[in-house]
Amino acid sequence: MHLSPDQVVFWQYGVFKLNLTIVTTWVLMLVLVIGAKLVTRRIGLLGKHGVAVTRWQSLLEIVVAAIRQQIIEVGLRQPEKYMGFLGTLFLFVAVASIFTIIPGYEPPTGSLSTTAALAICVLVAVPLYGIRELGLGGYLKDYLQPTFIMLPFNIISELSRTLALAVRLFGNMMSGGMIIGILLTITPFLFPIAMSVLGLLTGMVQAYIFSILATVYIAAATGTHRPLPKSASPQPTA
């Protein structure tokens, strides 16, 4: 038994290697992209005949609309700008956990390397979005709030929450697979099925938590929690 799918290496040349995590990720990417392409390729054709929509398109519309609604509810005013990043985070983690119903499948999110990669992406994306919205100065000023003394703590907070993101997702996904593996040796057949169902639930919850936290971080960085600047009112002079 291995702790991480990273340990299953199919091919290696120096530091370059092809392990189970990367291969599974590719498969998931293919499924997502091809599925999306298949569903959306006939949208234009159907659109001309009125409001006829296929079932798969309706499903995807529900998912996409729900993601957009979530982003709006967190407080980002232009959800389309963050849709690609945040939506993909959710869909990747969710699909990776849904596929656990396939026997022998190990989710790539069960590898700390993958969750760390996602957390690093969030770590990088948050200041990028913040700078794009507020400018470099405006973004960096946030680290001095409420006083400059808080600067190191803010930096520590930034790093620690990234670490927390990575470890939380890894721990949940890895533990689900580990528990099933262990239980299979003790009580085969029935109990692992219940655990698989539970694993599906925790996987979806983790996908939601991961993406919603990333959304909250971005919303905080882009300053959407602040009130909109008002026109300066004339001050009384002494």
Binding site: D6, L32, V33, G87, T88, P108, S113, T114, A117, C121
Partner: peptide, 19 residues
């Protein structure tokens, strides 16, 4: 595994673009 981390970052960015 840091190579895997880098590879997954790249994979994720590609997936973002594709989706």
């Amino acid at each position: 595994d840091w190579f895997t981390v880098i590879a997954q970052v790249v994979n994720f960015l590609i997936l973002v673009w594709l989706l």
